[in-house]
Every structure is written in structure tokens, then in C-alpha cells.
Amino acid sequence: MWRNTRSGWGLVSIALHWLSALAIVGLFALGWWMTDLGYYDEWYNLAPWWHRSVGVLLLVATLLRVIWRLMLPAPVARGPRLERIAAHIGHIGLYVLMLVALVSGYLISTADGRGIDVFGWFQAPAFISDLPNQATLAGTIHWYSALALIILAGGHTLAALKHHLVDRNDVLLRMIDPTRSRRG
């Protein structure tokens, strides 16, 4: 139920997957919107505060998610060999882009050595700071990796729908229903 098996995803992976999906789409939309806010907009400081706070939490969740994914087996891939290889590369790409986007975002705000306030609960410490032009370079990487992530996530969504609607297999359902992990 909690753990992944060869037949399905456990509840931990399912919850992390959908929370990440929600957070990623939300962060992308929020980031897009907030970077165009005028200086006098009442969201000018508040929107980045939300963006940073959610981003730090998602970074922690993603690191745990990668560890959990590497520790446990993954459900068997479906479809022809080429599709399975493409899916595998695509999934690695999603993980890499998530980490690059999250870490680069973190490096913007910590570029001068100050930590990131997370919802006023705690400060995420700055580990790497004062690299040459760090905030601007990290900002450029943040934007392009986030854009690539959203595009790849769009492809990921279409692929999942294809599995469900065209191939009519259980690939999408087993990311929704944790009880499938118990079926042998």
C-alpha cells in the first residue's frame, strides 16, 4: 500500500507525484505572473515569498522522492521497446529538470548568503553563495529549466493519456490507485 512494487505505485510515490505536479504547475504560473508585477503591486513582495516557500518545500520533497524512487522497485513499463526507452529517458529528464529548476531557484535567493524564509516557519540556509554573477546566472538557468520542465511535463501528460485512452493499459490508473501495488 505504501511501498512501490512491480505491479503498482505505493501511496508515498502517488502522493509525491500529484503534489509535485500541482506545485510545479502552480510555481510555473506564479513565477510567470509575478515577474511581470509592477513595483507598486500589492503582490510584488508576497508572490515571490509564496514562490520561494513552496519551492523550498518542493525541493526537499523532490530529494526525498528521488531517494524513495531509487530505494524501491518501479512498476513494470508497458508498451513496445522504443516507447519504454523513450519513457525512461523522459522520466529521467523530468527528475533532472525538476532538480535543476529547484536548485537554480534556490541559488538566486541565496546568492548573497542569506537564507530563504519558508512561510515564516524556518529559514532554509544558504549553502552556496557569492559565485560570480550568481543571482543572474541562476535566474537564467531557472527560467529555461522551468520552461523545459513544463513542456516535458506536458508531453508526460499526453503520454499518460495515450496509455489510458489509446493503449487502454493500467499506466495512468496505477499512479492513481495505490491498491494496485498489492496485486501480484
Binding site: P48, S109, A111, D112, R114, A135
Partner: peptide, 8 residues
């Protein structure tokens, strides 16, 4: 200016 986000 002592604030990386502002510098950016």
C-alpha cells in the same frame, strides 16, 4: 547592493 535578488 547587499541583496542578491535586488542586484539581479
Amino acid at each position: 547592493s547587499n541583496h542578491a535578488e535586488r542586484d539581479k
